[in-house]
Amino acid sequence: RSRTAFTAQQLEALEKTFQKTHYPDVVMRERLAMCTNLPEARVQVWFKNRRAKFRK
């Protein structure tokens, strides 16, 4: 699988949600996936990586 390049709009939506909660539930992730045209699995991995970045 190749690396996913996120658009500015996708990142904005993801970051906005991350500010609200670092652990979105499956419903919220699926809604984000639909809004951003990304698979739910990519949204889940983005949050996992973003939490790791946040802890540093």
Rank of each mutant, 00 (worst) to 15 (best):
L11H: 12
K16P: 00
F54P: 13
V43L: 05
E30G: 08
R50S: 07
K48C: 08
P39D: 13
L38W: 03
L14F: 06
R42I: 13
Y23V: 01
R1V: 12
M28P: 03
Y23P: 00
A33V: 03
V26M: 13
K48M: 09
F47N: 06
L11A: 09
R31Q: 14
R42P: 01
T17E: 08
K20V: 11
E15P: 00
V26S: 15
K48S: 07
N37E: 09
K20E: 12
V43H: 06
A52S: 08
L11S: 12
Q10R: 02
N37S: 08
R3H: 14
A33M: 06
N49C: 05
P24G: 01
R50A: 11
A33S: 07
E30C: 08
A33Y: 02
Q44P: 05
V26I: 13
M28L: 11
L38F: 01
Q44S: 09
K53F: 06
L38T: 05
Q10W: 00
A8Y: 12
E12T: 08
V27Y: 12
L38N: 00
R29W: 02
R29F: 13
T17W: 02
P39Q: 02
Q10N: 03
Q9N: 11
R31W: 09
Q44C: 14
D25F: 01
S2R: 09
R1M: 15
F6L: 13
T21R: 02
P39V: 02
A8D: 09
A41G: 13
T17L: 15
M34W: 07
V26Q: 14
A5D: 15
M34F: 10
R42F: 11
T36C: 09
E12D: 13
Q10P: 04
N49I: 06
N37M: 06
A8I: 06
A33K: 05
F6G: 04
E40A: 09
R42N: 03
K48R: 13
A52M: 10
E15H: 04
A33Q: 05
R51L: 02
T36K: 00
Q9C: 08
R42T: 15
A13Y: 07
M34K: 14
P39H: 00
N49A: 09
M28G: 01
L32M: 04
E40D: 04
T7Q: 04
R50F: 04
R29H: 04
M28N: 07
T17N: 02
E30V: 05
R29I: 15
V43M: 02
T4M: 10
A8F: 05
V45Q: 14
